[in-house]
Amino acid sequence: MQINEQKQGDVMIVAIDDHLDTIAAPAFEQRLLGLIDGGERKLIVDCSALQYVNSAGLKVFLLTAKKIETLGGQLVICSLAASVLMIFEMIGFTRIMKIAPNREEALLALGSSAPA
């Protein structure tokens, strides 16, 4: 699975691949937890490429959100495709996690603005 990292100010933006299933989830989980352990407290996961996520993938989002929140940070998930957003809604993630329509909104939610 391809995971791209991009640091913008104090925000770390992670863009993920199109598939987040049982096979891809462990690497994704390790990467996100590694960033938190490395001190990142403002995290955006850009899901614009994400087409499919199963429960193992959803678990990673939940775990990451819980962990960063206990440390006083925040996770924002942005640019969800309609089908993925539907799953997020069904599971109830939209109620407990910060979901943004795009990166700019996500940056705003984290209290930092997009570069001009």
Partner: peptide
């Protein structure tokens, strides 16, 4: 009858 999944957050 939709609700979030269980064990996400308390007091839902």
């Amino acid at each position: 009858g939709h609700s979030p999944a269980l064990a996400l957050t308390k007091r839902l």
